[in-house]
Design a protein around this nucleic acid. Sequence first.
RNA 1: GGCCCCAUCGUCUAGUGGCCUAGGACGCCGCCCUCUCAAGGCGGUAACACGGGUUCGACUCCCGUUGGGGCUACCA
Length: 480
Amino acid sequence: MSRVRVRFAPSPTGFLHLGGARTALFNWLLARKTRGTFVLRVEDTDARRSSQEMAEGIMEGLSWLGLDWDEGPFYQSRRLEIYREAAKRTVASRHAYTCFCSPEEIQARSAESRLAGRIWRCRRCRNQASRLVRSRVAAGESHTLRFRVPADRRIVFRDQVYGKVSLSTENIEDFTLLRSDGSPTYHLSVVADDWEMGISHVIRGADHLSNTPKQILLHEALGTQAPGYAHLPLILGPDKKRLSKRNGAESVLEYRDQGVLPMALCNYLALLGWSPGDDRELFSNGELVKSFDLDRVNKANAVFDRRKLDWMNSRYLAGSSSQDLVPHLQPFLERSGYPEERGNDGRLLPVIRLLKSRLNRLSDFPEMAGPFLTDDFDYESKAVNRHFSLADPEQRSRLRSRLEILAEEYDQLQEFNLENVEAVLRGAAKESGFKIGVFFGAVRVALTGRTASPGIFDVIVTLGRQRVVERLTRCLKLLQ
RNA sequence: GGCCCCAUCGUCUAGUGGCCUAGGACGCCGCCCUCUCAAGGCGGUAACACGGGUUCGACUCCCGUUGGGGCUACCA
């Protein structure tokens, strides 16, 4: 079997959205699984709509996801000679013809044909004598190059996902090869490049399924071998409509900025349209590569479900080592005003260890970690009201003195470890006469300002003796 | 409109003629664990779009209907 060479060929006219990322991922997975080559090609033949910024954004997205490419980026705008050469050959072999119709003219006539349920052909230009064509071109008349789609042929190809697909040429219009400015259009450049770059498998969205016969026709005309095709079902937004700006088609970098881990997104995307055939859902990068198989790709479109992504992300967060999370967490800490935590791993790591299993997104961390990173955190009024504002003055003073004693005990404690801390706190609760939940609740508020936190003993040990004593003492005045 | 493709719980999916009184996951609900909140464990809720065939037997094969998506550009 020949070497696998696949490509991801985004058009830099928009962001790398979920659909594009999934296409890139599947190409990458196949390349890595087969030890093949993953090529990045930027399809920027439409100069008007393409931009270098978009291209860079797409590459940033790919890099973030960990989808590294082996060759490229190749820009089609810098390979125009290849397409012009290919175009020339189609003219020489009479597979293409020069069309002098104006865009307006064509639009009107093709709309007309569509209404009649037919496909449009430019009968006028299709069979013009070549001498006349030459003189009109020489006279500077604006023109395009069109593919001469043969009459009444059935194009049949085998798609690795969809199986046998067939289409009659009666339903294929004479598509444009070269624009009036001489630049190639999509079909020409893909076909020329896929051949020139030795692409073995074209893996792309199913929106190209109907385009494939045109490209096969073009390969025929150029005398080149068509690659294998595998079309991927589309990813739909929550409303079951196609992904659009308002509907999940934002850049994947948005997910990064919202605190999604790249591996979590890859894992989630992999399961959109593909399944391993067993019950596994959480994959390491290596397992994904090993398990991936084009033959197990689904045909039906899939709806993107943010909640499942969040769940998966939370599993990755919980399963990551605290050390590995540090760099991912840094931007969120800085954004929340904890820039001093940079490089301060010694202080950060225990907090990550404590909180990582409760995070859904990286962005949840600063808020949750507040009481562990600074003394200047807020006491939730709800928490203070519920746990400190005891109506009974006797209870208030009892709680107050008990917390005061607790602070003293912690201050004096020999070794400030989990066992000792727990023993002391349980003892204090017992002595206080309050129910354990009530007493622990008060301590929790005193230490974190919240009603919810990790296990109180872990909180105490993570905060450390000094802060615990300080905070217990500090909150006494709330109980005056 | 024409052509192409698709169709299992709300969502992602397993299922390739009998193993299906349809399995897993997210979500949701309940219980357990428990100092709170998560996590975790256990249990529950919920689907073969519809109608015809084929067959001893259809979620699985065929046809149609309906629904959805795609293509129909000098966009990709």
